[in-house]
Amino acid sequence: MEATPDLQVYDLGHLGLVAGIVDRVGLVPLVDERVGPRPGEKVSTGVALKAAIMNALGFVSSPLYLFGHYWEGKPTEWLQGHGLRP
C-alpha cells in the first residue's frame, strides 16, 4: 500500500473570500507604502490591518486583547501569505 501524505483540513468559512478581496484590491502593499517600516516590527502595518479586517468580519465579540486567540486553529500562513503563525 502507498502511504498517504499528511492532510490538514481547515474550515475557512468566509475568511478565504475576505483575504482574497483584500489581496485583490492591493490593500497591504498600499498601506505598507504609505506607512513605511517601523523599528522592531514583526509584521508590517498592512499585514496587521488585513488581520484586523478579517477579525472584525469574523463576527466575534471578543475583546481586542484576545486578538491572538482568534487566529488559533486557522490557517494563518495560507490566509496571510507571509508564513505567519498565530
Rank of each mutant, 00 (worst) to 15 (best):
S62L: 15
I53G: 00
R85M: 02
V35H: 01
V35C: 05
A56H: 12
W78P: 02
E77P: 03
T4E: 10
V9M: 01
F59S: 14
H14T: 14
G36P: 04
R85N: 07
P29E: 04
D23S: 13
Y10C: 08
Y70Q: 08
L27C: 06
I53V: 15
R24W: 10
Q8K: 14
E41V: 07
K42C: 02
A3W: 11
S44H: 09
G20N: 15
T45A: 03
P63A: 14
V18P: 01
F59L: 12
G81Q: 10
R38H: 08
R85H: 09
H82E: 13
V9Q: 08
V43Y: 05
L64T: 08
A52L: 14
F59A: 13
P63G: 10
D6M: 09
V47N: 00
L57H: 04
G58L: 08
S44N: 02
V18C: 02
A3D: 15
P75Y: 04
T4R: 06
P75A: 05
E41M: 07
K50M: 03
V25A: 08
D11P: 00
A19H: 12
L7E: 13
G81P: 00
K42E: 14
V43M: 10
M1D: 13
Y70R: 01
Y65V: 14
P39G: 05
T45D: 09
W78D: 03
M1H: 01
N55I: 01
M54V: 00
R24K: 13
A51S: 12
V31R: 08
P39S: 11
T45E: 07
G81W: 05
V18L: 13
D6E: 14
K74C: 01
G16I: 05
M1K: 11
G73T: 08
I53F: 02
E2A: 14
S61P: 06
M1T: 04
G58N: 09
S61V: 08
L7K: 12
L49H: 03
V28P: 04
M54C: 00
D11E: 15
G68M: 01
R38T: 10
G83I: 03
H69I: 06
E72G: 03
L17I: 11
Q80I: 14
D32M: 07
Y10F: 15
V35M: 02
E2L: 13
V60Y: 07
T76M: 09
G81I: 01
D32W: 09
A19S: 15
H14P: 01
L17G: 04
W78Q: 06
V60A: 12
L66I: 06
V60N: 12
S61M: 11
N55Q: 15
S44W: 06
D11Q: 14
S44Y: 05
G83L: 10
L49M: 13
G83Q: 13
F67E: 00
P29Q: 05
P29D: 10
M1E: 12
